[in-house]
Simulated assay, not measured.
Amino acid sequence: MYEGAETVRELLKVAKESIPPTHWEKTPVVLKATAGLRLLPEEKSQALLSEVKEIFEESPFLVPDESVSIMNGTYEGILAWITINFLTARLHNTNRGPVGTLDLGGASTQITFLPQSQNTVLEAPENYLSSFEMFNRTYRLYTHSYLGFGLKVARLAVLGALDRHEKGHIYSSSCLPKGTRATWMFGGSTYRYGGDEKGVTGFQTCYSEVAKVVRGNLHQPEEIASSTFYAFSYYYDRAVDTGLIDNERGGVIEVKDFERKAKEVCNNLTNYKRASPFLCMDLSYITALLKEGFGFHEDSIIRLSKKVNNVEASWALGATFHLLQSLKSQH
């Protein structure tokens, strides 16, 4: 039995405690897996999904068609955009237009916004523009999910472990504290890593390593540098870890604030070794992703939120709206 499937069983117990029994058979249960499962071998991912489907079928809740599936990366970005703009009352606001969203997971990263410039529409790569209907309106969004550019996969890329996984090999980087020797599990594999004993540490050398991962690999719409974006997931977590924002309230920062913290951590690695040996690498990668990858300016403003109006800022609420809309259209 997969641990993930067992976790779903526990969540269903919570649902049964929260929802009156008279409503169980009318309450749909759905699981949407994201990039982490997309990276697993298909045999493993499908086995896990099958177990979750069985648990759903055993429950007293309504199980719609395709209730358990791996979500397309594009929809992940769109649904997060719907969530944020609904919660901030910007979807139908003529005075304050919709905001963009940035999501950084372990395996992928998403960017979604409503283009205001015709150049963005004309210059967008194929499949970066997507029409989506919600609340009786159709939105033509710029949205793309970059699989392989999430924070944890980026670590493997920086370490040189993405293309070759040699058992027993110690992967090193100038982003890691000297003297570090540890193991790290990701995607079902165990990696040994450590600091570069003979090399130079510090922000400049680390940044040059992580910038190679993103430079030239992401599309850069010109208008985003001056647009308002909400960011969450690992953007939020690393900002909290370094005191840039409050854990509960979030905050508003500029891109250069991530760079400032990256320099502070990377140039004093021994002081931050206990917090996380990857902190320097993560902050440098976020800085490079925003600047070198997406093309934000140093003074571009990013709003970091975990919750808006006490609702989690993620794709989940948007997915709920989409589900209810599809169920309504079937009846």
Rank of each mutant, 00 (worst) to 15 (best):
E3M: 12
A5H: 03
E6V: 01
T7E: 14
L12A: 07
V14D: 04
K16D: 07
K16P: 10
E17H: 05
I19G: 03
I19H: 03
P21M: 02
T22I: 06
E25G: 11
P28Q: 13
K32Q: 09
K32Y: 13
T34S: 07
A35C: 05
G36T: 02
L37R: 09
L39A: 06
L49S: 03
L49H: 05
E51A: 11
E54N: 12
S59T: 10
F61K: 10
V63Q: 00
P64E: 06
S67L: 04
V68L: 04
S69R: 14
M71H: 03
N72Q: 08
Y75I: 06
G77S: 03
G77E: 03
I78E: 12
L79V: 11
T83D: 14
T88M: 15
H92P: 00
H92E: 14
N93P: 04
T94I: 04
N95P: 00
G97P: 08
G97N: 09
P98K: 08
V99R: 10
G100A: 14
L102D: 02
D103Q: 11
L104P: 04
L104N: 01
A107V: 06
S108D: 05
T112I: 03
F113S: 02
F113G: 05
S117Q: 13
Q118P: 06
Q118H: 06
Q118Y: 12
T120M: 07
L122C: 09
L122V: 05
A124L: 05
P125S: 03
N127F: 08
Y128N: 04
L129G: 02
F132Y: 15
F132H: 12
E133Q: 13
F135M: 14
T138Y: 00
Y142D: 01
S145A: 08
F149W: 02
V153T: 13
V153E: 13
R155K: 09
L159T: 03
G160T: 09
L162C: 00
L162A: 07
D163P: 00
K167G: 01
G168A: 03
H169N: 00
I170Y: 02
C175K: 09
A182Y: 02
F186A: 07
G188R: 00
G188E: 11
S189F: 11
V200R: 10
F203K: 00
S208K: 12
V213Q: 06
N217S: 12
Y230W: 15
A231D: 13
N247D: 10
V252M: 02
V255Y: 12
K256Q: 15
E259T: 15
K261D: 10
E264W: 07
V265H: 10
N267E: 11
N268W: 06
N268G: 07
N268Q: 13
N271I: 07
C280H: 00
L283C: 10
Y285E: 09
L289E: 01
K291V: 08
K291T: 15
G293M: 02
G295H: 12
G295L: 04
D299M: 05
I302H: 00
I302R: 05
I302C: 05
S305Y: 01
S305M: 00
K306S: 03
K306R: 06
K307D: 01
V308G: 00
N309V: 12
N310I: 04
V311L: 10
E312I: 11
E312R: 02
S314M: 10
W315G: 05
A316C: 05
A319N: 13
T320K: 11
F321R: 08
Q325I: 08
S326G: 03
Q330L: 15
H331K: 15
